[in-house]
């Protein structure tokens, strides 16, 4: 277990020292969101209506950006071979990688989201549901992303390929995430808001299995 946390610690440290940590992802998040009013006009009512959806789409895109370095850097310097041969189950290694990815991109984005929500005229009572939904949903982005990153390891210009592979799998996260975030803003029939938060949690739990198992299977093939 100590090897597990050592790996998480190493990756977080590498990301903060070399990759600027979550800074770059947050910066990208900010830029994407400030492009939106240029595209659709500065109508505040319209912005309020689309704010949850835009925030989630931007979250997805920012999470994708950093995925191609998840295993690629380790593959290039040979660390990945050692990780695959290590006594620790490969599934746990992938989980550690996903956790460190989430700590350096998902978490900073969730923290930054309310601030950016203000720019899109998101009402204050929508902030807490938004943050809650993003907190529940964003681990699924890192976990499913790890499968895509593992599949594309060793592929030249794999970044684009990862996006193509992973985005279809992000659809449920986006749907449940947005509907959970919108629940406080728009009248929805029944208790769909609360339910979608639960469903979002279910998707995250499912990807807690799919991510490590699928990622490990892909890595075993890639490194052999």
């Amino acid at each position: 277990m100590s090897a597990f946390w050592a790996l998480v610690q190493r990756d977080v440290r590498l990301a903060t020292r070399v990759g600027g940590g979550g800074g770059m992802a947050v910066f990208f998040f900010l830029i994407v969101l400030s492009i939106v009013p240029f595209g659709i006009g500065p109508d505040l009512n319209l912005l309020t209506r689309i704010a949850p959806g835009m925030l989630w789409v931007a979250l997805l895109l920012s999470a994708l950006l950093t995925l191609d370095r998840l295993f690629q850097a380790d593959q290039e310097d040979g660390t990945l071979d050692l990780l695959v041969m290590a006594p620790q189950p490969l599934e746990l290694t992938v989980l550690a990688k996903a956790i460190s990815h989430w700590l350096t991109t998902g978490l900073p984005l969730v923290v930054a989201a309310p601030l950016l929500g203000l720019m899109l005229n998101l009402p204050l009572d929508g902030m807490l549901p938004l943050m809650g939904a993003m907190l529940v949903g964003s681990p699924a982005l890192s976990l499913l992303g790890a499968v895509g990153a593992a599949l594309a390891v060793g592929v030249r210009r794999g970044g684009l390929l990862i996006s193509l592979l992973v985005l279809p799998f992000y659809v449920p996260v986006l749907i449940f995430g947005v509907s959970a975030s919108r629940a406080a803003l728009v009248a929805v029939p029944g208790d769909l808001g609360g339910q979608s938060l639960l469903l979002l949690g279910a998707v995250s739990l499912a990807s807690l299995v799919v991510g490590p198992v699928g990622g490990a299977a892909a890595l075993r093939v890639a490194v052999k």
């Binding site: 659809v171 449920p172 749907i175 449940f176 979608s196």
Partner: peptide, 12 residues
């Protein structure tokens, strides 16, 4: 994932 995607799209 396909059943999950299909369910989420129905829900949406």
């Amino acid at each position: 994932n396909l059943p999950i995607i299909r369910f989420s799209v129905d829900w949406w």
